[in-house]
Each structure stands twice: as structure tokens, then as C-alpha cells.
């Protein structure tokens, strides 16, 4: 089974649609959209509504509805320079 979702780039507002298998993981979503948007190397997380998704969670665990929107957010790691 395949589910289509929309992923929003929190930094630019751009969106892209993505087809996901139930076995796909959140990490694979991050890698897919980071490569598509040619993101700088850095840490990113995905949110679904008011929840942050864990990297190893599979699509089948996420209760994603068709065309639901996820958001890719940078996870800042600076602060001591």
C-alpha cells in the first residue's frame, strides 16, 4: 500500500508531494526531501501537527492520512561560538 503526503520546507515554505510505502521510515522521508531541496548538511526533524516524529518510526505507525502535510524543520545545534 502506498500513501501520498505533502512535505513542507519550514525554511522556504516550498512543498513537495511524496509517495510512501508503509515500510518507509521518517529518516527516509528526511533524506528524500533534503536531497530534493539540496539542503545543507545539518540536522533536521519532521513534524506531524504538534508532534515530532522519531527517525525510525515507519509510515504504518504514523497514522498518516492521504495528502496529509508534514513539515521538515531544521534542528539547530549551534550556540556556543
Amino acid at each position: 500500500m502506498v500513501v501520498r503526503v505533502r512535505v513542507r520546507n519550514a525554511e522556504t515554505g516550498a512543498t513537495v508531494d511524496m509517495e510512501l510505502e508503509m515500510e518507509n521510515t521518517v529518516e527516509e522521508i528526511i533524506e528524500g526531501v533534503s536531497a530534493y531541496w539540496e539542503k545543507d548538511p545539518g540536522a533536521y526533524v519532521i513534524r506531524k501537527g504538534r508532534r515530532l516524529l522519531r527517525g525510525q518510526q515507519k509510515v504504518q505507525e504514523l497514522e498518516i492520512q492521504a495528502n496529509e502535510e508534514l513539515e521538515l524543520i531544521p534542528d539547530p545545534e549551534g550556540g556556543n561560538r
Binding site: V26, E27, I30, E31, S34, G42, A43, Y44, V45, L52, R54, G55, Q56, D75, E77
Partner: peptide, 8 residues
């Protein structure tokens, strides 16, 4: 660590 993934 619970919130980190391969990108980290």
C-alpha cells in the same frame, strides 16, 4: 537522543 535521527 529520542528525537535524533540519521541527519544528526
Amino acid at each position: 537522543q529520542c528525537g535524533m535521527n540519521r541527519s544528526h
